[in-house]
Amino acid sequence: MESPATQNVLIVGVGGQGVLLASDILGTVCLGRGYQVKKSEVHGMAKRGGVVYSHVRYGTQVLSPTIEPGTSDVLLAFEPAEALRWSKYVKPTGTVIVNTQKRIPPAACQDRRPDALTRYPRGIEQALRSQIEDVRRFDAETLAFELGDLRMCNTVLLGALSRVCEFSAEEWLAAIEKSVKPRTAELNRRAFLAGRSVEFPCAEEPQAEELVFEKREAARDEAPFIEIRQNWCKGCEICVRVCPQNCLVMNGSKLAEVAKAETCIRCMLCEWLCPDLAVSVH
C-alpha cells in the first residue's frame, strides 16, 4: 500500500536546461532521508529545445513512478510555456515555481518578418493563477547568469524548490556536491543559496510581457510597402528571382509586379539589386 503522505514533484523544461540533473539531485536528497524514490522521465527530446519532463515521487513507500494529473504537489518549471503545458498535473492547492525566461520554439516563429508575432502562448501567468493557489515566478536565468554561469539555472530553481520541500539546506547542498563536477561545486552552492533566498512575490513587472506584445502588434499593422516604378522597370527579372519570400512576379508585359507584399521581410534585396533603381521598400 502506498503511503498517503507521498510527495509528487514534477520537473519540466526544455532540452539542455538541466531538468534531469535537477531531478537526480532531488532524488539523492530524498534517498538521504531514507525515503523511497521513484522517477520517470522523458528525454531524448533534449536536442533542439524539445520538451523534457521528470516525475519524482518520494515517501515511505512509493509504488507508481508516474504522477497522475491533478495530484502533483509541486511543479518546478524551467520555462513558462512548459509550466502552462503541465499545469493540469498540479493540485489546486499545490505550488508552481516558474522561471520567467522564455524559450520560443522554432515552430512558433515561422513568420520571418523582423517584428513578427510569435505563436508563443500569452497570458501564462493569469492562466496559472486561475488554476493554482501558489504561483512563484522569478527570473532564475538572469540570477544564474549574474552568478557567473547560465547553466546554474537549474540549481537556482532547486534553491527555490527547497523552500517548499521538507529538507534542510544542508541536505540539499550535500546532494548537490555529490551530483555535480567538483570544479563547479562552489558555484552550484552559491547558486542554490541564491535561489533559496528569493522571496515571493519577487519584484517584477508582470505587465512588461504584454506591453511588448502590444508594441509588436502595432508594428505588424505597418506592413512593408513595396513600390515598383513601372516606367523605370526594364524587366530584367533580378528582383523576382532574388526575393526569398516570392513577393514579386513578372506580369504580362514582362515587368516586375508586387504579388503579395504581406509576406515581405524587408530584406531589401529587391531594392538593392534593382539595376534600374525602380524598386523601393518602405
Binding site: 516606367n231 522597370c233 526594364k234 524587366g235 531594392e271 534593382c274 539595376p275 534600374d276 533603381l277
Partner: peptide, 16 residues
C-alpha cells in the same frame, strides 16, 4: 530616368 543602361546591367546596382 529611366536611365539608358540595358535591362539587368550591373552598373545600376553600383549606382544605388
Amino acid at each position: 530616368f529611366p536611365h539608358m543602361l540595358c535591362p539587368g546591367c550591373g552598373h545600376g546596382i553600383v549606382l544605388g
